[in-house]
């Protein structure tokens, strides 16, 4: 049984610690670091509730060992909000009523973020394929698709604002 010292940057903050080799990344994030926004759903690599970004790639954090994340950049749902300002995806999920129980929501938003970074203006079909590794048992997905479309529009509009024209912040 090996133990490893790892250093990982999560949402811009450096974390380090000793982990047993068999500790899954999701357990280290939730149980050790107490970043509890990432959810453990199925434990079978099916549901996507534990999805985070690892070096920008949407990743089921129940299917990676914590030791494998050493030196990597991670983003979890806690990294979406900037100051008091909700991310367009969070706003979209709120405005479009894209959640009921909310359990799948962190994973849905992180998968959607990776999708929108790669494809800022996805079709409905592309959104549905994009989130096909995330299961929601409440909504029937209709409002989740609308929320991602909301975020896509908002993020694109923000892109078009000339630098410095936003003021504030």
């Amino acid at each position: 049984m090996s133990t490893h010292h790892i250093s990982v940057t999560i949402n811009g903050t450096p974390y380090e610690g000793d982990v047993e080799a068999r500790i899954l990344l999701v357990h280290w994030i939730c149980d050790t670091l107490r970043l509890t926004g990432t959810h453990i759903g199925c434990d079978t690599t099916s549901c996507g509730a534990c999805t985070i970004l690892v070096d920008g790639k949407a990743t089921k954090s129940c299917t990676m060992f914590a030791v494998q994340a050493n030196g990597r950049q991670i983003m979890t749902v806690e990294g979406l909000e900037q100051g008091d300002k909700l991310h367009p995806l969070q706003e979209g999920f709120h405005e479009e009523h894209a959640l009921q129980c909310g359990y799948c929501t962190p994973g849905m938003m992180m998968t959607s973020l990776a999708l929108l970074r790669r494809n800022p203006n996805p079709t409905e079909h592309e959104i549905r394929v994009g989130i096909s590794g995330n299961l929601c048992r409440c909504t029937g997905y209709v409002n989740i698709v609308k929320a991602v479309q909301y975020a896509a529009e908002k993020m694109q509009a923000a892109e078009q604002v000339p630098v410095g024209a936003e003021g504030g912040e």
Binding site: T111, G130, S132, G133, N134
Partner: peptide
Amino acid sequence: VADPIVRNW
């Protein structure tokens, strides 16, 4: 193969 998130790794 599996789903798009799994396919990233």
